[in-house]
């Protein structure tokens, strides 16, 4: 079991090592100018400088707090609305056409309108994240609820349980694994959205740092920002997996 896990991690870390080696080789042979692809050394130095000056921590905190705020709102809205749409055919028919159309619009296309409506402060940034993370949560909640086996619902009917009890004891646990899939997708999109939203008019945040560094031709800072997002996103994804694993002991 633990042997298996070690092997899985080893296999998984092969590709990052290969990429690092390739990167090292490419910059070592001076295939690219540092403005296009800086060396790993250079990137690491920037990382240390940014960390030491406290700028990195500030950027991370700013972006993370936006992600968390937007994500929490999106999950709450998506799960509640998804549950209602999953349990009521009328609500499903009423909303699904419109929501499906809205879902097709990329987040970036929303940004101009969101700026007009919410201004260039925090609200607009969080609104972008909510909009991005909401749909995967919604769609997966609906499908999880609707896929609840009717046999289980029939058992609940035998005992004349209230609608609320049936939801709590049958629909919700049955849909939970699928809701979790939506929550993980939503979290990934939250990071996409936070970077996009920080292009609006921000003075801090990882997304802001990346676009700011681009205009100053600091490719090393851009790469530090990207790697930090990747690592943070991965950590949060793993943390969610752990929570889900604990929350659904029967799936083990």
């Amino acid at each position: 079991m633990s042997n298996n896990r070690t092997r899985r991690y080893l296999t998984g870390s092969l590709l990052p090592i290969l990429i690092a080696l390739g990167w090292q080789a490419a910059t070592g042979m001076a295939l690219f100018t540092p403005a296009i692809l800086p060396s790993m050394d250079r990137v690491f130095k920037s990382f240390v400088e940014m960390a030491a000056s406290g700028q990195l921590a500030e950027d991370v905190l700013v972006s993370l707090s936006r992600v968390v705020k937007g994500y929490v709102v999106a999950v709450a809205l998506g799960v509640v609305m998804g549950t209602f749409m999953g349990m009521s055919d009328f609500l499903h028919n009423f909303f699904s056409l419109t929501l499906n159309a809205i879902r097709q619009i990329p987040i970036l296309a929303w940004i101009p309108l969101i700026i007009l409506w919410f201004g260039i402060g925090e609200e607009s940034k969080i609104a972008v994240i909510v909009l991005g993370a909401y749909f995967p949560v919604l769609v997966n909640t609906i499908s999880g609820i609707r896929q609840t086996p009717q046999g289980y619902v029939e058992v609940a009917r035998l005992y004349r349980l209230s609608r609320w009890t049936v939801f709590r004891k049958v629909y919700l646990p049955s849909a939970l694994p699928q809701i979790f899939v939506g929550m993980k997708l939503g979290l990934g999109i939250s990071w996409v959205a936070v970077v996009a939203s920080e292009l609006i008019a921000a003075s801090a945040g990882i997304g802001f740092r990346i676009s700011d560094a681009r205009s100053l031709m600091q490719a090393d800072v851009v790469i530090v920002g990207m790697i930090v997002i990747g690592v943070l996103g991965l950590l949060m994804d793993k943390a969610l997996s752990l929570v889900f694993h604990k929350a659904t002991p029967w799936t083990r």
Binding site: G151, Y159, R160, P173, L176, T251
Partner: peptide, 27 residues
């Protein structure tokens, strides 16, 4: 439906997320 009639189906239809104890006490 009413609790004066119990039913057992071809598939056991125990709720996978409840323990056997919770399943038996479900009704």
């Amino acid at each position: 439906p009413g609790t004066d009639r119990g039913m057992v189906f071809q598939e056991h239809r125990l709720l996978p997320w409840l323990t056997i104890r919770e399943n038996v006490g479900f009704g």
